[in-house]
Nucleic acid binder design. Sequence first.
DNA 1: TGAATTGTTGTTTTT
DNA 2: CAACAATTCA
Length: 810
Amino acid sequence: MTDASTPLIVGGSAPSAARPDADLLEGLNGPQREAVTYRGQALLIVAGAGSGKTSVLTRRIASLLRTREAYPSQILAITFTNKAAGEMRERVHQLIGQKADGMWISTFHSACVRILRREAEQFGFTKSFTIYDSGDSRALIKRLVKEHEGDSFGLTPAGTQSRISKLKNELADAESYARSANMSDPAERVFVEIFSSYQRELQRANAFDFDDLIAQTVYLFRAFPQVADVYRKRFRHILVDEYQDTNHAQYALIHELTRPVGSDAEPFSSGGMMIFDAEPAGEDAASLTVVGDSDQSIYAFRGADIRNISEFERDYPGAKVVLLEQNYRSTQNILSAANAVIANNFDRKDKKLWTDVGAGDPIIGFTGYSQHDEAQFVADEIEALHKKGVDYSGVAVFYRTNSQSRALEEIFIRSAVPYKIMGGTKFYERAEIKDALAYLVAVANPADSMALRRILNRPRRGIGDVTETAIARYAAEHDITFRDALANSAQLGVGPKLQKAIDQLDAVLTEATAVMLPASGELAPSTSVTEGLTLLLNKSSYFDALRASKDPQDEARLENLDELIAVTREFARNNPEGTIIDFLTEVTLVADADDLDDASGSVSLMTLHTAKGLEYDAVFLTGVEEDLLPHRISANEPGGPQEERRLFYVGITRARKRLHVSLAMTRAQFGEVTVAMPSRFLQEIPADLIDWRQSPGDVNGRGGSQSRALNARGRRPGQPGGGNRYGDDLVPLPKRAPADPSKFPNRIPAKVRDNGDMVLAAGDRIRHDDFGEGRVDAVTGEGAKRVAHVRFDTVGPKKLLVKIAPIAKL
DNA sequence: TGAATTGTTGTTTTT
DNA sequence: CAACAATTCA
């Protein structure tokens, strides 16, 4: 069956015209070609940013199919996001057409859901299990922490959730953790209790959380070797993208799948002969290809283990390693900056990206007085690019935290820059959407009492805490589900008004069930999801309540629900066979960032994490400040600052032609205006690569040496684009002794002066430590962001941040 | 039960 | 400055 044993003779040499896949190798360099054609048990492709790895991966798949070494159904390709999966499918399709159908190209999570749905009955779940997203599981954990009085032991819901998640990613469960934990510590005991009741609740609700999807699949494979063998036989070629971001559970899953068929069959079939893991895999084991770049590992916080890639050769003896270092995306200036930055991470294999497209434009730097000022620069610059013919969709703005998008949005709206936020405040996290989905879950998975509890009093029916507990108690006493308890409202011991409310809810749910899950056994058409959802929202009076409300926000909520209904229609169109369960699965696993791929005509705004794997002609990296990038919280975490540096590196390497880095001198965070310092990462970029429109030195006025060092060449006179409104009043900086090059070039005094209460008005004369005396023209802004426009006698006009400028009133 | 008010607290990245 | 929790009052 496996014709893969017929070795293909390749090497890096030119493809012979006879090869059926010769056209697939066109335009590839030597290492790329080898990555496509190598055949063997294990292949590691170390692919630097922009080195064409997606191209290599898709051609490798296409080549396997074209040469008939594999059927589509024998291929399992794992990507990190659904969007990447879609792209890969699309590109393989372009290469070889229809034959691409039948492959599994999906994320770890989607692939596991598919397996689990098929095998759920093996271990106490049903096919119609639902998936808890992090919000759902947080809600459940919150309840459990309260019930177990975890707060008196210092357990917070958030902390507990992340601990449980980490443990699951390590394939630990409550029991195994308890064995290793110090159980004499009462806090540990309570934690274990919460952990195990959380797991029990999930099972009772017939639900998995995100981490379970992977971990339980591994358990399934380990507990039922004959089930695992089904998939081992099926998947002959497994390819994993972004391997540096896999966690232990994902690693284990891949490991299970790439073991020889029958290797861990029941004792009787191995006939007393022990078969070891390390035994040569033989041709029965699937071939494994992984692609990764340890410099782009940015998900350690989620349990990603960089060792999965660094120890690949140990885990898969005889593995072939191919290095892709030539970059086809960015200009040399951008790559030099990236190389210089990442070189500061010790403990990494040296790797240098290079290109032959030339130096390109310098990197543009800008320092704003506030985040609004910074945003205005970004908006103006985008407009300038647009006038030069750069399409909006070729521009992206990155930031470290989601909250930074607000200032940008405000300015973009005012400046009429079309934009789209990728992944931000998620559509599916809005309360009204979660409510609507909870209605659907209540129908699709009646065991899920969490969903039911959520909608019990939405819209308001007068069902409060007391009634909810009454229902729960009744359910427990009679050993029926929460859902079934609703049908017996008369026996709950509640008032007649409440009885009626419960009866009504029960009736609505029953009616919707008949629509979406007909008892007759016939399959409901996929349009029934739209029908059922509309029915639920109408007959539950959810719509009525919103329409009657005076809260102006409720209008937007109605629109959002309309949008959700539109999503169900779209779903029905794309999945003629789709059931309500399929719909719910898709909605929980497909993040917003994934389906918004069509940002045509808009600038894309996103976090640095979301940016991974994407590329744009022009990139703006904003908020490059200490405590933001690197983020303050990372400072105390082992490996934190290094991961932040990789994040910065990922951001830089997204840019094809133009890169902008910007920061603000002050940033408003929870009501307080704080003074920000330039990020250490800026110092790591060679000074001659950055052209500062306005350097940190220009802004805090302490600048002579700093700004000159940051911009060794000074502002280039006569440079087009000098009409930039920020450049207008910039003047050559005063002469000073050259800065000590051994010092950080843009170090800002750690101790920040505070002139917060200095009263300045137009006409005042002041003295500046560096610029000498001058006259105040105007003062703009408020509070900590007050900016003085000063005309100095010797150096001309400058803008100064009053709060921190080294100035004194005369 | 639910609305309104005050107080508290946290402040990163995501499938 | 949020969002959220606890508290008070109708």
